[in-house]
């Protein structure tokens, strides 16, 4: 049994965790870490019978994910406080959006940078407002800057100087030079509000974006994790709305993403057992190649497909801790006769 196969089976609920041998867990844990799925797996197996060390590790991962999710949502809140006074509307994307909406795929999910979508015409104002509120360019490099502006679908990444967290400001969901040009105005126009007053994409757009991110935009970015997001999103949306698959078809076609969305759905079916309606339940020979690449990890978490060596770089908190929020004027003179310590 391959470790990556076991991981996929455990997530899909096809394999009983109690049936794994103690040493099988080594590979499952390593591959889950490499795919940024360990927290997700820990939640998925919350009630499973596990060897004691695995149960302890998974409890650690669930607790850590709770903290990380709060931190990610706080970044969204800080972006709201920076942009709202200027009347700039923005839509949360990816992990932060799933967490803000408390979607099932958010449980234990690792969240990287804050991704937001801003209408093209508000981009310059958003950039200014964020910089006033303490975000700075990661690199002041004219070439990179021009490259991003001309070719990418987002501003060059900004990092907050106090909190050391990144924000990616998108104005559409695929690079501008991509042959497919999703309807960015519709994405923003049809966004929905969470109870906390944050905006997220509507269900069909969320599924479209997830597929676009994974299939259309580069080489299976996020791999198994994004495919898991897609599986959970469409499964839950379809359970809540019988007409979901039809709407998804229409919406994907409008964005020019029907190929990506259908491929993501078939891959999710083949790996995670997503139930698809008849019109979607097809087979394409090229899917196998995608599937092989999604599963290209050895039992040590290493990528066995050189094209897939998209390691998850951890911006090292060991080398430089994000600073504590030390109030800047710690020793300000306040009372008469009070002297700095």
């Amino acid at each position: 049994m391959s470790a990556v196969g076991a991981l996929v089976d455990l997530l899909a609920g096809r394999r009983d965790a109690a049936a794994l041998g103690p040493r099988d867990w080594d590979g499952v844990i390593s591959v889950a870490r490499a795919e940024a799925l360990l927290g997700t797996l820990a939640h998925r197996l919350n009630d499973a019978r596990l060897p004691a060390p695995v149960a302890l590790l998974f409890a650690d991962m669930r607790a850590a994910a709770t903290v990380a999710t709060r931190q990610a949502l706080w970044e969204a809140e800080m972006a709201r406080r920076a942009l709202a006074p200027h009347g700039i509307e923005f839509v949360l994307l990816k992990g932060t959006a799933y967490a803000a909406a408390n979607l099932p795929c958010a449980a234990g999910r690792q969240i990287g940078d804050l991704d937001i979508l801003v209408p093209w015409h508000d981009l310059a104002r958003a950039e200014n407002a964020l910089r006033v509120a303490g975000w700075e360019w990661v690199k002041e490099d004219a070439y990179d800057d021009a490259y991003y502006r001309d070719h990418m679908h987002e501003l060059p990444p900004l990092i907050h100087r106090e909190r050391d967290r990144m924000i990616d400001v998108h104005h559409t969901i695929l690079p501008r030079t991509h042959r497919i040009t999703p309807d960015a105005l519709a994405l923003v126009g049809d966004a929905v509000r969470t109870p906390d007053g944050l905006s997220i994409l509507c269900p069909t757009d969320m599924a479209c974006h997830c597929a676009a991110h994974m299939i259309a935009d580069g080489d299976l970015q996020g791999g198994l994790r994004n495919l898991w997001d897609f599986h959970r999103l469409v499964t839950d949306f379809a359970a809540a709305d019988r007409g979901f698959w039809g709407k998804l078809d229409e919406r994907a076609e409008m964005h020019g993403l029907e190929g990506s969305v259908h491929r993501a759905a078939r891959l999710a079916r083949d790996l995670y057992g997503t139930k698809l309606p008849s019109g979607w339940n097809r087979h394409r020979p090229r899917d196998e190649r995608y599937q092989r690449r999604l599963l290209a990890r050895d039992g040590w978490g290493g990528a066995t497909d050189p094209l897939l060596q998209q390691a998850f770089y951890i911006r090292s908190h060991w080398l430089r801790m994000p600073p504590l929020m030390l109030a800047r004027h710690l020793w300000t003179k306040w009372r008469k006769g009070h002297h700095p310590i």
């Binding site: 040493r23 867990w25 870490r33 060390p53 695995v54 590790l57 040590w300």
Partner: peptide
């Protein structure tokens, strides 16, 4: 028999 918490390659 104890599963590993951490893997080094």
């Amino acid at each position: 028999d104890r599963p590993a918490d951490a893997t080094v390659r």
